[in-house]
Design a protein around this nucleic acid. Structure first.
Lengths: 113, 113
DNA sequence: TCATCATATAACAATATAATTATATAAGCA
DNA sequence: TGCTTATATAATTATATTGTTATATGATGA
């Protein structure tokens, strides 16, 4: 893993974005699987606009990408981001979040699949 | 370097603290040298209370320690913090900040030494 | 003990953030 | 085309953050 050196501003911006529990968890999820907005709404038990707004911040910073598939929009980690190595380092320090997605699929039929 | 896994809350708290340009730079400085409040005031060209308040947040989270030496209070990195390895990873992604201290010592006589 | 220096804390103002509700947009389908 | 579903955006509100000025505290030294 290359150790990219970026400006203090760039790093601080990424840290501020990840310094929110919801967004940090989202990034951990997206690092393993693309997620549809509707899945994230269910996982975080939060209003759809709240989820969209978090996603927009991540997208505006270039941390995630979006792809439309029919009615749904899937978000994915932008692994080409200059600071992706930093993000991986950070995510290595939190517990795996994939059970959240697994648990969701067990308890609810989600529309996007 | 051990890869400690902490809770999402704990990691998000640290990231939020480091997600501020001033505090991120402070941490980079403190990782190499203990700093007196008066030095930080000069380096950041910010009011003394503003500096004290940033330091307090870092101290409250256990990221830095303080030591009084005569009239001065020196702050230092708490290398025993559970998430110090994460902090080191983060700091490895920003440019070295030590010139700021060097430059300060060249331009001004600071009282603490 | 009193004055001074270094720092912390309190009070406040300006701004940023994050959530909600209401509404707009865009795709898919009868 | 018009209805439904999925998502985005706007408007608003509540709260958090960051900085400033004013003041308190605590150590030093005459």
């Amino acid at each position: 893993m290359k150790q990219i050196v970026a400006s203090v501003d760039e790093v601080a911006t990424v840290l501020k974005l990840l310094g929110d529990k919801t967004r940090l968890t989202m990034m951990a999820l997206l690092d393993h699987h693309d997620c549809c907005v509707c899945e994230l709404v269910e996982i975080f038990q939060m209003s759809q606009p709240a989820i969209s707004q978090h996603l927009r911040k991540l997208k505006d910073a270039g941390l995630v990408k979006e792809t439309r598939k029919a009615k749904w929009i899937f978000y994915s980690m932008n692994k080409e981001h200059e600071l992706y190595s930093l993000i991986k380092n950070i995510l290595a320090h939190i517990p795996d979040q994939q059970e959240k997605l697994k648990e969701l699929k067990e308890r609810t039929k989600i529309s996007c699949e």
